Lab assay of single mutants.
Amino acid sequence: NQESVVAAQLIPINTALTLVMMTTRVVSPTGIPAEDIPRLISMQVNQVVPMGTTLMPDMVKGYA
């Protein structure tokens, strides 16, 4: 089963992602794949992401 990127903390809107903000977990439905974490660093979220929420492609500016 593929791991997806999950918020390790509350991420406010327009925050640039850092490694410490993200963790990985096997979730359903699947979100952004864990191997894309290096690509996500410094990208901004376009909404508030509560802790434990799976990051979906449409939540990250410039990802999709």
Rank of each mutant, 00 (worst) to 15 (best):
N1F: 15
N1R: 03
Q2F: 12
Q2E: 15
Q2C: 11
E3Q: 04
S4R: 02
V5I: 08
V5F: 01
V5E: 01
V6L: 08
V6R: 02
V6E: 06
A7K: 01
A7L: 02
A8R: 14
A8W: 07
A8K: 09
Q9Y: 08
Q9G: 05
Q9I: 04
Q9T: 13
L10C: 15
L10T: 11
I11W: 02
I11H: 00
I13P: 07
N14T: 04
T15I: 04
T15E: 04
T15V: 05
L17I: 06
L17Q: 00
L17N: 00
T18F: 03
L19W: 12
V20P: 05
V20S: 10
M21W: 05
M22R: 00
T23S: 15
T24V: 11
T24E: 11
T24M: 14
T24A: 13
V26R: 03
V27N: 05
S28N: 08
S28L: 04
T30N: 15
G31F: 02
I32A: 02
I32L: 06
I32S: 01
P33R: 09
P33T: 14
P33G: 12
A34I: 08
A34P: 10
A34L: 14
A34Y: 07
E35D: 13
D36W: 11
D36H: 12
I37W: 04
I37H: 03
R39T: 08
R39I: 08
L40I: 08
I41R: 06
S42F: 09
S42H: 09
S42D: 05
M43F: 13
M43G: 13
Q44Y: 10
Q44F: 10
V45K: 00
N46H: 12
N46T: 11
Q47T: 09
Q47M: 10
V48A: 12
P50R: 07
M51E: 10
M51G: 04
G52E: 09
G52Q: 13
G52F: 14
T53R: 13
L55C: 02
L55S: 01
P57M: 13
P57N: 11
D58H: 14
D58M: 14
M59Q: 05
M59A: 13
M59D: 03
M59P: 01
M59Y: 05
K61E: 04
K61P: 03
K61A: 08
G62I: 06
Y63S: 04
Y63K: 02
Y63R: 02
Y63I: 03
Y63P: 03
